[in-house]
């Protein structure tokens, strides 16, 4: 069981690294915002898995907050790009 959790965490770390490279390279504002969105989603899943590793029920609330509030920044940036803010 522990090996599976380690494999999952390392795969997620590689996903975060690749999308961060896209954030640095991306030629456009929309590309960087997509990278931020992907990083937020992977971070939410990582928070839930780390909460399972620590065996504390209260730790899952942080992932809940990220799932509820993480997309507001992306929507505000999109409205700014559209010129409608």
């Amino acid at each position: 069981m522990t090996t599976i959790i380690y494999i999952a965490l390392i795969l997620m770390a590689f996903g975060m690294l690749l999308s961060f490279i896209r954030f640095v390279k991306g030629p456009n504002t929309a590309d960087r915002t997509v990278a931020l969105d992907t990083l937020t989603t992977i971070g939410t899943a990582a928070l839930v898995l780390l909460g399972y590793m620590f065996h504390r029920y209260i730790y899952v609330d942080v992932a809940l907050i990220y799932a509820v509030l993480g997309f507001i920044g992306v929507i505000v940036i999109a409205r700014y790009l559209e010129g409608a803010l």
């Binding site: 494999i7 999952a8 965490l9 997620m12 996903g15 975060m16 690749l18 992907t38 899943a45």
Partner: peptide, 16 residues
Amino acid sequence: LLIGSAFLFLGGLGIY
């Protein structure tokens, strides 16, 4: 869990 982490890695790879 394995399926989910594989798809998260593929998402990052696709972004790159």
